[in-house]
């Protein structure tokens, strides 16, 4: 077994709010510098920069998972993490059917698709930060149907979190983990009726700028940095573990 540092929440320049410096190449270079072993690329409702990141990751020895930060119709942010990029693309296709607003880069920022040499290859037109047409439960079901892991993003934040939007986590919601922004804040929310108990806790950087990488990560103990091992770690099975320092 090995102990690794995982960051399952990173935006690229495809997210309109992501800095244009957040190209897959620069992200991976920085991830290497700060000692991350496994990352997920999670742009808002899109996964167009994942494959480029994966091929650069392969060269640098960093495992890159296909991911997405989905906005449910209640405006709850959920991370979908997949073992195969094709599954993420299927989800993207479903989501894009419901995105009716077009992006205005002057207002929201560019949504750039970038190649391995940091060159812009194109722009995505639907406004990716808008809410999808799927409810929280529908997103969760879809991610699981596609074999992915579903993590509620930054649950303790005052906006776009399951708690800010819906007050508390609905009973029996089959989340694979909850991502927490501040572990000490999270600890004060436990046993207060928010339904946070019993979920594996992860840290993600939610990086929109290069300097944010490495600031928060999850420790995992696994056999190797594969998707399968990650899912075992989130479920605390077969000796695999995932935890946040200080929790």
């Amino acid at each position: 077994m090995i102990e690794l540092r995982a960051d399952l929440h990173i935006h690229t320049c495809l997210s309109p709010c992501g800095d244009l410096d957040m190209t897959p190449k620069r992200i991976l270079k920085k991830a290497k510098e700060v000692g991350l072993d496994l990352i997920a690329i999670t742009d808002h409702n899109a996964c167009g920069n994942v494959e480029v990141a994966q091929s650069i990751g392969e060269e640098l020895g960093i495992q890159v998972m296909a991911g997405m930060e989905v906005t449910s119709k209640e405006e709850v942010h959920l991370l979908g993490i997949f073992g195969e990029v094709q599954r993420a693309k299927e989800l993207e296709e479903v989501l894009h059917k419901g995105l009716k607003i077009q992006n205005d880069p002057e207002i929201f920022g560019y949504q750039a698709l970038v190649n391995e040499k940091d060159e812009v290859e194109g722009f995505v037109s639907p406004l990716l930060i808008s809410a999808s047409h799927l409810s929280l439960e529908e997103v969760l079901r879809k991610v699981h149907e596609l074999g992915g892991l579903c993590i509620a993003a930054h649950v303790d934040k005052p906006s776009y979190s399951i708690i800010s939007q819906l007050g508390f986590i609905p009973k029996a919601l089959e989340l694979d983990a909850v991502e927490v922004w501040d572990i000490s804040h999270y600890l004060t929310l436990l046993n207060q009726g928010y339904g946070l108990e019993g979920f594996t806790v992860v840290y993600g950087s939610d990086s929109h700028f290069l300097h944010q990488l490495g600031g928060r990560y999850t420790k995992i103990v696994v056999e190797d940095p594969s998707f399968y091992e990650l899912s075992l770690a989130l479920r605390n099975q077969e000796g695999r573990r995932a935890w946040v320092e200080g929790s």
């Binding site: 119709k73 209640e74 409810s135 819906l166 609905p170």
Partner: peptide, 10 residues
């Protein structure tokens, strides 16, 4: 305008 079941509990 929220339509999720949590509105009932609230």
């Amino acid at each position: 305008i929220q339509t999720h079941q949590n509105i009932v509990a609230v």
